[in-house]
Design a protein around this nucleic acid. Sequence first.
RNA 1: GGGAUCUUAGCUCAGCUGGUUCAGAGCACCUGCCUUACAAGCAGGGGGUCACUGGUUCGAAUCCAGUAGGUCCCACCA
Length: 893
Amino acid sequence: MSTLSSKYEPQAVEDKWYQYWLENNYFHAEPDPEKEPYSIVIPPPNVTGVLHMGHMLNNTIQDILIRKARMEGKQACWVPGTDHASIATEAKVVRMLREKGIKKSDLSRDEFIEHAWEWREKYGGIILEQLKKLGASCDWERTAFTMDEGYYKAVIRVFVDLYKKGYIYRGLRMINWDCEAQTALSNEEVIHKEDDEKSILYSVKYQIKDSDDFVVIATQRPETIMGDTAIAVNPKDERHQHLIGKKALVPFINREIPIIGDDYVELDFGTGCLKVTPAHDQNDYDIGQRHNLEVIDTINLDGTLNEKCEIPEYVGKDRFAVRKQIVKDLKAADLIVNEEEFITKIGRSERTNTVVEPKLSLQWFIKMIEISRQAHQAVMDDEVVLYPAKFKNTYNHWMENVRDWCISRQLWWGQRIPAYYYGDNEDDFVVAETESEAIELASTKTGRSIATKDLKQDEDVLDTWASSWLFPQAVFDGFNDDCFDVEKGQIIPGKNKDLDYFYPTNTLVTAPEILFFWVARMIIAGYEYTGKKPFKDVYLTGIVRDKQRRKMSKQLGNSPDPLDLIKEYGADGVRTGMLFSSPAGNDLLFDIKLCEQGRNFSNKIWNAFRLITNWEIDENASNPDNQFALNWFEARFNQALVELEDHFSKFRMSDALMTVYKLIWDDYCSWYLEMIKPPFGEKIDRKTFDATIKLQEKLMKVLHPFMPFLTEEIWQQIDDRNPEEAIIISKWPEPDSFDQILLDEANLAFEVVSNIRNLRNSNNLSPKEQLELKVVTKDKGAFKNSTSAIKKMANLSTLEFVDKKPDNCMSFVLQSGEFFVPITGEIDVEAQKTELQKELDYQRGFLNTVQKKLGNERFVNNAPEQVVAAERKKLADAEAKIKALEEQLKKLG
RNA sequence: GGGAUCUUAGCUCAGCUGGUUCAGAGCACCUGCCUUACAAGCAGGGGGUCACUGGUUCGAAUCCAGUAGGUCCCACCA
């Protein structure tokens, strides 16, 4: 008996084949003019990251695309890499140091960076190693890192170039400041808790200048009163219109501030009067810009108040302490007219949980409108195609309202901004790739000799996205001295073999959350630096959620460890499990059962293969009866292949997998193999065997992108008669034309078989008991090739065509005939009758609707001829069927 | 508040330019089976007013309008 286990054991083969692929360098691709290129750049995961379910989905899809392309004979190159992820990594390093008792503030910049590199050496590779377990066929020789020396230089070069082109400027901007960690936060690091954050809204009286009247404003931050530079009301507000143009006095310090009209103010919130504190609120800042208001920053970096608040007893105290204090003082002065609780969505720092302080500071920006124009148009014109298409709208909306991009971050880990200051004025700086260039530039600019010690480089680093937006060119070293023209600020074609060949890349597979952060910006950089798009298609995956639709997250603990899953179900099982429920662009509701389904599928295939390998071959025998099965499956395969290509072309990965799944499980295993399977103990003829092996091989090929390990294992076991050395580089089957008539005949045959099986079931007849079948039909041709297959599959002793309807039979009616199975034992007449009656009722109902349609003159006159003709045929068929059913019912009494 | 998008079987989803692949798939469920590849399996079966209300049309799951509900993105109420 078999030497193969009846259970497929992925653990035993996966590492072996991955190693084999690596050793043979199958993943590596060099430019080859003979071949069509196909390239993908990975969305680089955070260098500190650990593989999660989102990565699994994302990388499975990329691997499928790249493996298919490779088999199609393209030069397939999938470039892997990691992102230095400045904020996330720096936070991790800080935490790690803290655990060792080292404070970041005690370290110099260089010392800290050194620690960060150590960290990255130690943990940076983990996620890529994990990808290997998944089977990812990345070109590891090309592994990139956004802080690699060459990449670093590219980022700096681009900064300098954009500065020279006038796209980069320095400006004031309201940022999220973490007073505890003393750093700026990106919006993503600020958590807005909606639920139970309660605050008090105070109504405070401000005296109107030169009168005894007051204006009452509402605020939840009375400690910022001293930074007020205006009071705003809505110009449409009849209650307050008359105040516009007057002046009010800030409590305690009695500074005069104007009362202005601005649409921003809501009529029905608070008192309808808003105190404007441009230094400590984004909206107030915007209002300040519109009305040229002064900005008075009363809060220090650590959250205490400074001298500008003008009240000595508040200076140096924490903002929240001052809040309590000033409320007391305002009450004492009888200036608070109302207090009410309300629920606020205050922002807190993800890291320290302190309330984020909006703060104005000088930051670096990229002007976006002009530079993004072509990238905007490219997507609108489908030059770059988004899948699913609905994201085109989102993209459009964003690009139409694009805002300048703040690219500086108050961190150390990242590309340091190459601006060098030589004086105290805001404009006393130069931007240069290197310090020596900076010295030169500064000397020229100032007309005096500037030395290293006179220069101070900007302390900030660049936003991570300001490096990863160059990924598609930078991974091919597109900004090096040879191919980057510094004068033009462009990458010159013909100077970089890799870039000339692999760029533009073909497909980008990523998450919709970063459509703007990353995808849009890559398109912008692509056009800016190469004049070309960076990729043709963008496939946006969904978010992996649990069964309750909750996002998978560490905090919730609802995310399984992908490596554990791989251990349990095999990489192939997990890959297919992810894909079973992930229609393009929809969220994926992950359920462990899907991995189980994937594993079961592996096992099914394994056992089909086991069946074949156990057959003994008779070199001399021939079995013409098998020809039908062979011809049919060939046709069916080609039909499925056309379907498969269609799904692939539309990035319907889940449907593509399902096509292969059904082809293998239903068509191949349940029908084809059962049709050609020799009776127990008998040998199979050579011709059928060889043909079957060929089919198995073809099936393994179309399955390979989805299940690389299992298919390679089977391929390698099939033996060496095949000249193709490994399935990973074997040739993808070409779709061929197929015989529809043959497929129709088979479908009819299968229906007959199913009906007979059904009769067995409902009459408790064993599948082992042989039955006879008598067929009354006008169209014997419909069974021309399939009779022996029907006999075998339905376990019939005879199948004959008769003219007269036999008695004492179970029966059923199909499109072109009536089918009778003589019965020796007891038949369940009632069951038969209900079956037939049910069918009869259905047919009569159907007939009714068709008659109605055809009775409608307007239908007959207006509908296209074929539609009417089809309707007439339906009518005739239904009438014939009804007649047959009625007769059979009559016979049963 | 602005925008996008969705609502089809118990669940997750297909369903292209309105008409035979128009009511589908996978899973789940039910009934028989340990039949010599596979119980991680085999055979069979039952599930749906296509969210609701109108309209256009000879004909609507499909097109239009409105209603209800869901999801996402952006901006956020001092």
